[in-house]
Design a binder for these strands. Structure first.
Lengths: 197, 197
DNA sequence: GGTTGAACTGAACGTGCGTTCAGATAGCAT
DNA sequence: ATGCTATCTGAACGCACGTTCAGTTCAACC
């Protein structure tokens, strides 16, 4: 038996990436074997190599896709004016986007050390670009006298760490709803940079 | 050749744990082999088993020791009164303690998924105990009308994520000194819960 | 100075790894 | 019906893994 009815490249490829993302997030890149990924998809290990040159590229592509999507979605937000409104929008966006794809976030933030140096540089650059968007907001807000920050770079990293932490505990159908969580986090972020609640 | 001059159990044991901590933090538990750890110590892989029953216990012991030390150090802080002062003290302590042992922190926060369920439960309980200390401060502060928080549990997790994030970027001898970083983070933490800066 | 025992070596065990590839299969075009 | 090609199998490659253990070495003690 080889190709089963209705199984095509356009189906198997995404299924492989989805399985890899789930398993990498759950057990870690190094702890997951190509055979496990293949089994999840219902395929032999060798078939994976029709869709990725190797395991490392599979990881790097997942991370790159996540960060590309993140930046794209950020750019697609409606324009708002004023640093306070922009920070509020950024915080809500960050929470919402991350809450919806916990596996991708987990992988993108925890598997950096498993990237070969070339891939690492590319992924790190994307991360930096995203951080820079937040830092620009903080700089503008400080320049306008709306934010009180001793150091915008530190504040950027502190805020991102705080916001991203939501993925460690948020579960669909839990005590707090998504909009509620977005609001609470955005409120804390604004207060943290000196905007009165 | 077996035992070299001056090499004893009291020296090799800690060296093994130190090497394991460093390597686990750098590359991840699953990506590090017992042979790599042994090589770092200057010993054959088999010798490790005089000091640990297996690789899993080596990881679990590192995490337990870290969290035990964290809780012990927290308890050893001088007593201060008032939720604001207590939160300030907690934030500075957390930053300082974590800055000084980035490898242990990395391992304790990133390798939870590699723990077998029994070890996981024990480690998770310690983490919970630590978080509860912070939440108690937040509850007291809210009850006293000093903090403005919609949800103490969420705020606890948000603050810990923000503070722990310091280990992702802080480097000895960098642009900002330790005391400076402690102050900035403590300030943000206080503001985030509604204490005017 | 012979004996003891803690500390360690070095080789081996079975297992699973990432990756390759010749061959089998099945849907599509002719 | 036949041939084509994308898709996948199944076996194999060499290698590294965690762990075990009989044997070796050396400081310390009698």
């Amino acid at each position: 038996m080889a190709r089963k009815t209705g199984s095509h490249s356009e189906i198997t490829g995404p299924r492989i990436r989805a399985a890899a993302e789930r398993l990498f997030a759950r057990h870690g890149y190094a702890a997951v074997s190509m055979r496990q990924i293949a089994a999840e998809v219902g395929v032999q290990a060798g078939a994976l190599y029709l869709y990725t040159p190797d395991k490392q590229s599979l990881l790097a592509d997942l991370m790159r896709d996540h960060l590309d999507g993140l930046l794209e979605a950020l750019d697609a937000l409606p324009a708002v004016t004023g640093a306070v409104a922009r920070l509020d929008q950024f915080a809500r966006f960050h929470i919402g986007y991350h809450i919806e794809r916990p596996d991708a976030v987990f992988v993108a933030y925890m598997e950096l050390r498993n990237l070969e140096s070339e891939n690492f540089a590319a992924i790190e650059a994307l991360r930096r670009r995203y951080e820079d968007r937040l830092e620009a907001i903080l700089r503008d807000g400080r320049a306008a006298g709306q934010f009180a920050l001793p150091d915008t770079k530190l504040a950027t990293l502190a805020l991102i760490a705080m916001l991203t932490g939501v993925t460690n505990w948020y579960r669909e159908g839990g005590r707090l709803g998504r909009a509620e969580v977005e609001g609470i986090y955005a409120d804390m972020a604004l207060k943290a940079v000196g905007v009165a609640g």
